[in-house]
Amino acid sequence: MPVPLYQKKAEFFRMLGHPVRIRVLELLGDGPRQVRELLAEIDVEASNLSQQLAVLRRAGIVMSSRDGSAVTYTLAGPDVADLMRAARRILTEMIVDQTELLAALREPASGTR
């Protein structure tokens, strides 16, 4: 029996569910980066970054190429960068909504005393 699409989507989002992986995808959204550049931007051990890059590579979300000892990573396609931008927009709206709700809660209640 084939796996339902909603289950595959859940697996996909679980795979993305690590802060280092998200940060890597955000950085690669700006263009290819060598591992040393990623390490300079992300505060993790090289072994941890390597492990997270391997997860993204196995999932087919990033691709790597080697030039001598330098390994460069790129997004496999533009859709991932679009997804990261969409997530940023959604979170921004959520924060705006929460800020507006907080402001309304802090206002004195009219007609109560």
Rank of each mutant, 00 (worst) to 15 (best):
S69M: 10
D43H: 08
F13T: 15
E26Q: 13
M15N: 09
A10W: 02
S69N: 14
Q98T: 08
E41A: 06
T99S: 14
T74M: 05
L25N: 07
L56P: 00
E93V: 11
V35I: 03
G77E: 02
Q52N: 06
P2A: 13
V96G: 12
I42G: 02
L53W: 07
R106E: 04
T112M: 15
T72L: 03
L105E: 12
R89L: 11
P19T: 10
V96M: 08
L83D: 09
E93G: 15
L25P: 10
E100P: 03
A10L: 14
V35P: 03
I22Y: 12
Q52Y: 00
G111P: 10
R36K: 14
Q51N: 03
G17Y: 11
L5K: 06
Q7A: 05
E107Q: 12
L91Y: 06
P2Y: 11
A76M: 11
L16S: 14
E11F: 03
A10P: 02
L38M: 15
E45Y: 05
E100Y: 07
E45W: 04
P19Y: 10
A54C: 06
A70D: 04
G111N: 07
T72S: 14
I42M: 09
S69H: 09
Q52R: 14
N48C: 04
R33T: 00
F12N: 04
A86Y: 05
S110Q: 15
D97Y: 08
P4H: 10
L27T: 00
I61N: 00
S69C: 00
A81L: 06
A86R: 09
V80D: 02
T74N: 07
V24G: 00
L5N: 01
G29E: 03
L39F: 01
T112D: 12
V3W: 03
M94D: 06
A46V: 05
P4D: 03
F13I: 14
A40F: 04
H18N: 15
R106K: 15
P19L: 10
E41L: 10
Q7V: 13
A54I: 00
T112W: 13
V24C: 05
V62R: 08
Q7C: 04
L5P: 02
R66A: 09
R89N: 05
Q51A: 05
R89P: 00
L28Q: 01
V80R: 11
E41T: 07
G31R: 13
S50C: 00
M1P: 13
A10E: 09
P4A: 09
R14H: 08
G29T: 10
L49M: 07
G77F: 06
R33K: 15
P4T: 00
Q51F: 07
V24E: 01
A86N: 04
L25K: 09
D79L: 10
R88Q: 09
I90D: 04
M94T: 09
L49Q: 05
E93P: 06
P4K: 07
D43A: 15
G17H: 13
T74Y: 02
A59Q: 06
S47N: 01
S110P: 08
V24H: 01
D97T: 03
M15F: 00
P108T: 06
S64I: 00
L91K: 11
E100S: 05
T92G: 07
L38W: 09
D79K: 15
G111E: 15
R66P: 03
L56W: 02
A86P: 05
V62S: 14
A70K: 11
Q34I: 11
A70S: 12
A81D: 11
E93I: 05
